[in-house]
Amino acid sequence: MDFEYFFELFLGGLTRGSIYALLALGYTMVYGIIQLINFAHGEIYMIGAFTALIVAGVLTLMGWNQVAILVIASIAAVVYSSAYGFTAEKIAYKPLRNAPRLSALISAIGVSLFLQNYVLLAQTSDFLPFPNLIPEFEFLKPVEHIVRSSEIVIYLTTAIVMVALTILIKFTRIGKAMRATAQDQQMAMLVGVDVDRVISVTFIIGSATAALGGVLIASHIGQINFYIGFIAGIKAFVAAVLGGIGSMPGAVLGSLVLGWTESFFTGYISSDYEDVFAFIFLVLILIFRPSGILGRKDTDKV
């Protein structure tokens, strides 16, 4: 077996997986807290990318240096996307919190379509070039044909975000409140947890990771349009389910497994059936582990 080829496919899968993971984390957090599949999550990611594009465009005109642009554009994207996530929750999900779960799901699909069309009308339906915001590291020059600096940055960001979120949930006050809300909303409320605030924070954090993903992925790929959120969102959702929705490490593991599956299948067999194979794999895993690779068995609360 050709080891170099295997290694390249491995890295390609790792990139894809990390990209999915940045989105899957947001899905899984929101699901963990309020059992809502937030279909608008992909759109939040898309809005993050658009915000970064606009901010970066302005700053480039003003002649700022690349690292400063990356940092400021990322912050702008995070703030803007978080605002959208926060608002979407207040407008579209909060009023439906006690309605059947399906209503909130339909509402999420509505938000997704609304945001897509809003960007389509407010911006453009064309593909836009996205500047390469991530600087090329000197020390990577010799291995540039195997791994690029934007890929390294994506791996690192995903790892950092995952660790930070785990610490946040395990060891902080708000994390404790989150876990309480996830376990039993009513009980949490009774012991004094501000459930509304916890849910808002969850949406803000989820949107922020999606926005970071948007900036990194767009500058890795180099183009965006209003529709990128849809496919990425669906894939990330699948990854979250694969890993066990509601579980943080599960979301990352599921994303990596999905990324590697796609990469190796394309590399060794054929890219024609890339998605088919990815989904067959999903079905197989769900048959043997219905709650995902790292999912907890969840007995329904009646």
């Binding site: 080829y5 390249e8 496919l9 890295l11 390609g12 899968g13 990139t15 894809r16 990209i19 999915y20 992925i217 890795h220 790929i221 529709y227 990128i228 496919i231 990425a232 894939k235 796609e262 990469s263 190796f264 394309t266 590399g267 890219s271 890339e274």
Partner: peptide, 10 residues
């Protein structure tokens, strides 16, 4: 619409 085509390029 896939996020990247690195496997095909390889």
């Amino acid at each position: 619409g896939a996020v990247d085509y690195s496997a095909v390029v390889q």
